[in-house]
Amino acid sequence: MELLITIVLLTFLVAIVIGIIVLRDLLSGVILLGLYSLVAAGVFIVMDAVDVAFTEAAVGSGISTILFLGALSFTRHEQKPRGHDSIVALAFVCITGGLLIYGTLDMPHYGSAVSPAQTHPELAVHFLTKSAGETGMPNVVTSVLASYRGYDTLGEVVVVFTAGIAVLSLLGLIRRRPEDEAPEDAPGDLPKLPDDKSEHNV
């Protein structure tokens, strides 16, 4: 049953990616990308990664779709019909993919419980057997995320913060007209808009 679900979802993923490659309309591309994330989240649930599925659904198909739509709202919707058959790109991708497939040939099979990743006594095994006693959390993902690898998560928060200030510096937080682009006032302050008519210009 699990296998069947996986196969169906994987087929979906492949179909979506083909759609993204073929379609030229960017809006469809964005929607398909959101769908891709959503289906991937489904696959993650089948693979027991509930936290990841939750995040992927919220971020991949939620937030990033909104960001794409926002960006599309003031650029073009259609990709120009060029740049379709780059032999060099195709060759590069084929070689890379071939190398990856070669690398997977003697990997532990899917679902194997005896692979190095599953049996390392101080990582996977430690987390599953000792984390409840050491941190008192039933959700191992949370205890690894926030405590054992809390430093990674600190880095992750800093990445989010970096992205926040990067977008702040590139776009600013508020819409402003060119004439009130005075260098003195900070990019984030509320503008004194005479009325809210201008809001329909978005």
């Binding site: 990841v52 794409f68 990445v159």
Partner: peptide, 29 residues
């Protein structure tokens, strides 16, 4: 149970991914 460590790594990677996307889209605009 399935191995929790890849889940943790990917939670971090998802966040990094959306951060990169946001910066890239801001640059595109």
């Amino acid at each position: 149970y399935s191995n929790p460590l890849p889940h943790v790594l990917i939670l971090t990677a998802i966040v990094v991914g959306v951060a990169t996307t946001a910066v890239a889209l801001a640059l595109i605009v």
